[in-house]
Design a protein around this nucleic acid. Structure first.
Length: 589
DNA sequence: GCCGTTTTCGGCCCGACTGTTTTCAGTCG
């Protein structure tokens, strides 16, 4: 899970730091084979603290006894929280790390490797790191161990490969969090005129490699001096007056560049990228007798500076309208701009409601009332309650009896809203599980009582592409489904998407008037940008939903919207930009 | 380690899948 600051400030660093320590304690205890319930307590406390809508530090400052009013926090965790806030670390955590090894925690990130295997490999072969594990697996040394065979070895090697593919890049939400904090921090430096993040972050790419922050200021050295003393800086890689590079404590490289006001737009354009987009743009400039650099647009024959103060000016100089950062991937945006055919991209404010929300009834954290209240505050007209169905046991999915009860509860709630003169509506829905054969986990009778049926795959991820495609199309063809949620099942921090033929899926969706979800959860962003464009081009309607499990996660909407923007999506392509009446008309075929 | 009482200990959501076994342990949601 993830983070950010200022306007995206759902979490705050103290809560996250503490949650991380508790998660690591849980992992380490698990490797040691401790009492599973004790382990669960730590993990649960981590989740609770991470999702806490208030800064835990402010609770402690007010009255630390209040900590034990938080569900899942008792005497022992109370003390550990206070200790971490006071000293920055937990003694118990440090002890465990000394006893085992911090790098053992990395091993758990390899898919197919859990605490028992970590312990086995450590005890039997002394394996402490992913590199050592890879070596041993390649050399065939794992297969002799109890419970391990050739296939397990292959699986682990595959897991290592996919782990390595994600290493070195960070989730967008983590990047945003740091970027926002650093920007706020730099803006407080005397003489700073402006500070903005550029790079893949500004393009809302789903993962980012490093942070680029551009600053205009009266005096560069003051900015750089302050930057290197940012609390999260681990080491300074290079420090000069125009560019300074540091490594943050979490391993994220961050560059700050100080620029003249005159070239700020050109620099912003240059450092926002993508590289492919910039190459195409400069090529175009060349053909017009111009040259674009981070310092501006110049006439080739006499090197005369003609533009660069604003980003718009750079595009204008090469005869183009402004191209939004999300489109700058050289996927046809320059051609479209030239023809005046750039899409009018969807905005966060276009969203009228959220169609994928969990309550306490399954694995969410809040009641319908709390969720509705927050949705009203966000200016929404409606939300759909979509708890899991019974097949998803771990999430305490609803059987039909409980679903019918929830339907009644929502009816009563809506009546109350109406009697208070509220125009807001809670829609009755479900996130019904698509079983292995493509049948749905609720009966037709029950599903027909609902306003919105969202259907999802949660199990058997390793089917062949053909079977998985057929499975989901079967669900679509029931005629009972309105939305397919997170259609590829990927998790950006670790799970590959399951194989599915997206084109066939979209064809079926189009044929049966089923919408595809753009899941806004920063770890999912599923459909991804390319699939969004595919859906749009094929005339398949989209829904942008947050998959909220805690009411504040409704603010994830901006991640979903920006991800869709990367797929050229416009307001008209998205169902939940419609007012309620229109929405219901469109899905009740 | 937390929680809730039927107050100070016993219970704490579990089912599917995989690869290894030959009846099950480990992993994953």
């Amino acid at each position: 899970m993830t983070i950010f600051a200022s306007s995206y400030n759902l979490w705050n660093m103290e809560n996250l730091d503490i949650a991380k320590v508790f998660y690591e304690i849980a992992d380490l205890l698990e490797i040691k084979g401790e009492n599973p319930f004790r382990i669960r307590s730590y993990r649960n406390a981590g989740l609770v603290i991470e999702g806490l809508p208030v800064n835990i530090k402010s609770i402690v400052e007010r009255n630390e006894e209040e900590l034990e009013e938080i569900p899942g926090i008792g005497e022992s965790l109370h003390e550990k929280i206070v200790e971490i806030l006071k000293t920055g670390k937990s003694h118990f955590h440090q002890e465990l790390l000394r006893e085992l090894s911090p790098s053992l925690l990395d091993l758990l990130k390899v898919s197919g490797v859990g605490p028992k295997k970590v312990k086995l490999f450590y005890d039997e072969l002394g394996i402490k790191s992913i590199e050592e594990l890879e070596k041993a697996a390649t050399a065939g040394k794992l297969r002799g161990l109890p419970g391990m065979g050739e296939k397990s070895e292959e699986k682990i090697l595959k897991g290592i490969k996919s782990f390595q593919a994600t290493v070195g890049r960070f989730g967008l939400a983590v990047g945003l969090s740091y970027a926002d904090q650093i920007v706020e921090y730099l803006k407080k430096t005397p003489g700073v005129i402006d500070a903005v993040p550029a790079g893949s972050l500004r393009r809302w790419k789903e993962t980012i490699g490093d942070l680029d922050i551009l600053v205009t200021a009266k005096k560069a050295s003051t900015v750089m001096d302050r930057f290197v003393s940012f609390p999260d800086v681990a080491s300074v890689v290079a420090k000069g007056d125009t560019k300074t590079t540091v490594m943050l404590k979490n391993g994220m490289q961050t560059d700050v560049r100080v620029l003249d006001k005159k070239s700020f737009g050109a620099a912003l354009q240059y450092f926002t990228g993508s590289k492919a987009h910039n190459v195409a743009l400069r090529d175009r400039a060349n053909r017009m007798g111009l040259k674009i650099s981070e310092y501006g647009v110049f006439r080739e024959k006499d090197e005369k500076w003609i533009a660069g103060e604003k980003e718009e000016d750079v595009y204008k100089a090469v005869g183009l309208p402004y191209i939004p950062p999300e489109l700058r991937e050289n996927r046809g945006e320059i051609g479209a701009a030239e023809k005046g055919k750039l899409p009018k991209l969807i905005e966060v404010d276009d969203i009228k409601g959220d169609l994928h929300i969990h309550t306490k009834a399954s694995d969410g954290g809040n009641t319908i009332e709390v969720l509705a209240e927050y949705a009203v505050k966000k200016g929404y007209e409606y939300i759909a309650i979509t708890d899991h169905s019974k097949a998803v046991g771990i999430a305490h999915g609803l059987n039909e009896e409980r679903l019918l009860k929830q339907i009644e509860e929502i009816d009563r709630f809506n009546k109350r809203l109406t009697s208070h003169g509220s125009p807001f509506t809670v829609l009755k829905g479900t996130e019904v599980d698509i079983k292995g054969d493509g049948t749905l986990d609720h009966s037709e009778e029950a599903l027909k009582k609902l306003d919105v049926v969202v259907a999802t795959v949660h199990s058997k991820f390793n089917m062949t592409e053909e079977d998985m495609t057929k499975r989901i199309i079967n669900a679509i063809e029931t005629g009972l489904v309105h939305v397919i949620a997170h259609p590829t099942g990927r998790l950006l921090t670790g799970r590959e998407p399951y194989p599915v033929n997206m084109e066939k899926l979209l064809e079926a969706a189009k044929k049966h008037n089923v919408a595809m979800e753009v899941n806004a959860y920063p770890d999912r962003l599923d459909l991804n940008d390319v699939h969004c464009k595919m859906a749009k081009d094929m005339g398949v309607m989209l829904v942008i939903s947050t998959d909220t499990h805690h009411y504040l996660q409704m603010d994830y909407m901006r991640f979903g919207v920006n991800n869709a923007r990367r797929g050229w999506v416009e307001k008209k392509d998205v169902l939940n930009t419609r007012p309620l009446n229109e929405l219901l008309k469109m899905i009740n075929r």
